[in-house]
Design a protein around this nucleic acid. Structure first.
Length: 196
DNA sequence: CCTGGGATTTTCT
DNA sequence: GAAAATCCCAGGA
């Protein structure tokens, strides 16, 4: 999706992201004898349909890291739309966010769940799809860490979002309160979580 | 089904 | 020094 797609009201973008595809490219480089860095392999791709997102909007949203102002950590949320904001939570899990709205307005969308192709369990099985529920699991599954922080969503960086032209029946889109933000005062009750 | 606690480190006060 | 946009496992009902 273009930067323009993300330069819109965050709640609209959040809803529009449901049914879009998160795509990760794993470059396959191989080395031939006598040559350096010759590309011989084929890139691998992993895609997942986005099933659940949460919006963090503006300088006053107490649930958003940006409510503390512009810091080394949060400056990316004040930056250009269509860039990744990746942070570590509880010392163990990375959370993947895409920055939205115009520059200098802090907002981002947390990708919480995706549906990937593949067996239901690592051992096999017949399922064609597997739900990856929870931002920590999404990052683990897509091998996302802080290297993506502040990078644009693009095939060049290896992580981007594609429009698969899946039409989501609006009746299937649900909204609710955001998870894990009980400390956020009145902001905790905002229905800024969207899921299928 | 539910609840509670531990892991582990960055960030800001 | 405390809290954090989480996850996993154990134990009880």
């Amino acid at each position: 999706m273009s930067q323009k797609f993300f330069n819109r009201p965050t709640l609209i973008v959040a809803k529009d992201l449901l049914g879009k595809f998160l795509v990760r490219r794993f470059p396959k480089n191989a080395y031939r004898r006598g040559q350096n860095k010759t590309r011989t392999g084929t890139d691998k791709f992993l895609t997942g349909m986005i099933m659940e997102v949460e919006a963090y909007i503006g300088p006053y949203d107490k649930a958003s890291h940006a409510s503390r102002g512009k810091t080394e950590r949060t400056k990316v949320m004040f930056g250009k739309p269509g860039h990744w904001y990746v942070y570590l939570i509880y010392g163990m899990y990375y959370c993947l966010n895409i920055v939205t709205e115009k520059e200098n307005y802090p907002a981002a969308i947390l990708i919480r769940s995706v549906l990937v192709e593949g067996p239901a369990s690592p051992k096999g099985g017949r399922a064609l799809q597997r739900g990856v529920y929870g931002p920590g699991r999404v990052s683990k599954c897509f091998k996302i860490d802080k290297r993506f922080n502040e990078k644009p969503a693009s095939i060049k960086t290896g992580l981007w979002i594609e429009n698969g032209n899946i039409k989501i029946n609006p009746r299937l889109i649900k909204r609710g309160k955001r998870i894990g933000v009980d400390y956020a005062g009145k902001w905790k009750n905002k229905l800024w979580r969207f899921y299928i």
